[in-house]
Design a protein around this nucleic acid. Sequence first.
DNA 1: GCGACAG
DNA 2: ATCTTGTCGC
Length: 271
Amino acid sequence: MTVHPVRPEFVPDPALSQTEMEELQRDIAAAARFEDEMDVLPEAITRTGDAPDVDQTTLSTSADDRTEPPFIAGVDQAFVDDKAVSAIVVLQNGEVIERVSAVERTEIPYIPGLLSFREGGAILAAFAELETDPDVVLVDGSGRIHFREAGLATHIGVTLDVPAVGVAKNLLCGTPEQSLDERYPEGTRIPITADDSVETCPDGTVIGHALQTRQYDSPNRHINPLIVSPGHRVSASTAADIVEATADGYKLPEPTRLADSYADEAKATVE
DNA sequence: GCGACAG
DNA sequence: ATCTTGTCGC
């Protein structure tokens, strides 16, 4: 079956002018849904070895009461010269169900705010190889935390019309409600609100969270929080719930970690 | 002009 | 993102 664009008009075209790219992003943001519209609830996400302590049939929002835990996909890229390698790893109940990768030439350099036009082609090529239909996709980078609310996770999510979450290591824009330089305990969530740099929504709108998925025991050194934002069909708080539920002892959620290493592995195959 | 910016 | 050994501090 494989995963293909449902909105072909949103497929990122690196040949567009910067102004056209920004226009497209505004259209994508208008089509994006930053509220919960998934088929499964985050409570249904299980880790490896987790006992199915909850009745899966109560964890679905769809009529066709599913009995299976959700499919969570992680997407990440690696680069070799002018080639982008995109890797997707799908997990269910903490176990790898499928892995695919694709290689595409990068046509433009990295430009803050226009990342999807550099990496999007490779990502969509990888999805075209994917047999599994993921319930939600974790994309490396921003979703709604973006100048036009159309980061990479939003672009991919809306184009494929799949629930998507943005998982970034650094903040692109927006204002954290508390300093991100302090040491916070695991589980801490700090809202990121829109400011003047987010030109498409009112100041103060919560567009994502800093999420402390891991922390050292000693007060001396600390780990920086992840930056999590909704991509498509998820709310900001549910996006954080999903990342928290898929994190398993490391800073990055498992689908993202595994996609990261698989991308590196696939990179060795590229010349 | 300066700042500031995912991967 | 990528180039890369040791090393600081659990």
